[in-house]
Design a protein around this nucleic acid. Structure first.
Lengths: 195, 195
DNA sequence: TTGACTAAACCGACTAGTCAGTCTAAACTT
DNA sequence: AAGTTTAGACTGACTAGTCGGTTTAGTCAA
């Protein structure tokens, strides 16, 4: 068994190419050329391009989550300040994570319609992401009495802002647009500070 | 000249098919079959599929704007109440407009990368949409002193929420998710009411 | 006559997916 | 230790079909 299996090389290339060009615009031939493996290896490692897509999106989200988790916003005592620090951390990682768009959003547009199993996986992963955000917002909502939304609403709102912000950034070809949108939401949270 | 030109029939079919299946998953052959015109007519009326895409997205946005404008939220005296009524109106039109996603967002994901001219058009149309929203939020911001964001930030924030909300709705295959996101933003605005 | 249009053949490039067969390394037998 | 078997990683030519776009020959109404 080689040190790096064909499957690992394929996944590695696929993550990069899917992120760069999207699922529909990336052919299996491109992937195997980039990975330096044969067509046969591909279909030995994956049942279909669709199954590779599902594995890729799982890896992608795991990576995003790990990057977003590696901030120093955990220590703060104040739940609101922790939320603000988390958003600020997301802003600072935007270039690295989303300058070529978000694979979750792109896959939703590319595949949700005609590939039910991928759509189902995307729903699951978005729900997972949402749960993590609920855990972030929950203490804040409990701490602040005048907040208009509950934790679940805030989590979903933030998720949709992130996705919308990335999309607008793509349309403008300017990651600053993405960061501005996220920053505005942070300002909204900051306005909840007691004064 | 026939009463309905081939070009009109093509645009009509393209709008429906692009909205349903996306740009990349809709072939020229499908479009001409649906429109009941020949391939020759297609390339007589449009220089390329890409040019059809650009015309289609212009028509789409014009349609969305006209639907969103046809509300009765214009009369109100209070700028904030006008904003709230506008958002409520958008919510009520969500099924009709966005149950199959938003063509602006889908085109951004499908084409922004590899079709610079389409991307440029999308940027222009998003900017146009943003300007209209600025005009909506401007009086509200002037009226309320404690708002954390200026009109441009609010407009962009709302735009990104709409796009993100539609995307999440697609992933969940549930337009209610889309409406919930928009509704949450409305609640945020409602919390700005003086009390 | 002109311009919108039809019908269908055609093009080369590209698509996802298949298949018979090769190679290697470990397991088993003698 | 030497020879045999076997699993599965891997190969790359191949299939059948689709893609956007072109071309040709001809229709039809104003």
């Amino acid at each position: 068994m080689p040190r790096v299996t064909a499957k690992e090389k394929i996944l590695d290339s696929a993550l990069r190419l899917f992120q760069q060009d999207g699922y529909l615009s990336t052919s299996v031939d491109e992937i195997i050329a980039d990975a330096g493996v044969s067509k046969g290896s591909f279909y030995h490692a994956f049942k279909s391009k669709e199954m590779l897509g599902i594995e890729a999106i799982e890896h992608y989200l795991a990576h995003v989550i790990s990057v977003l988790r590696d901030g120093d916003y955990h220590q703060g005592d104040d739940p609101l300040e922790r939320v603000i620090a988390y958003i600020r951390h997301s802003e600072s990682k935007a270039d690295e994570l989303w300058c070529d768009g978000c694979m979750m959003g792109n896959f939703t547009t590319d595949l949700a319609r005609h590939h039910p199993s991928v759509r189902s996986k995307l729903k699951q992963l978005f729900t997972e992401m949402e749960s993590q955000l609920v855990a972030l917002f929950e203490p804040m909502v409990a701490d602040i009495d005048c907040c208009a939304l509950n934790a679940k609403q805030l989590a979903r709102q933030y998720l949709s802002i992130i996705q919308g912000a990335i999309l607008l950034g793509q349309a403008h070809k300017d990651i600053a647009v993405t960061k501005d949108c996220i920053s505005s939401f942070r300002q909204l949270m900051e306005s909840l500070r007691p004064h």
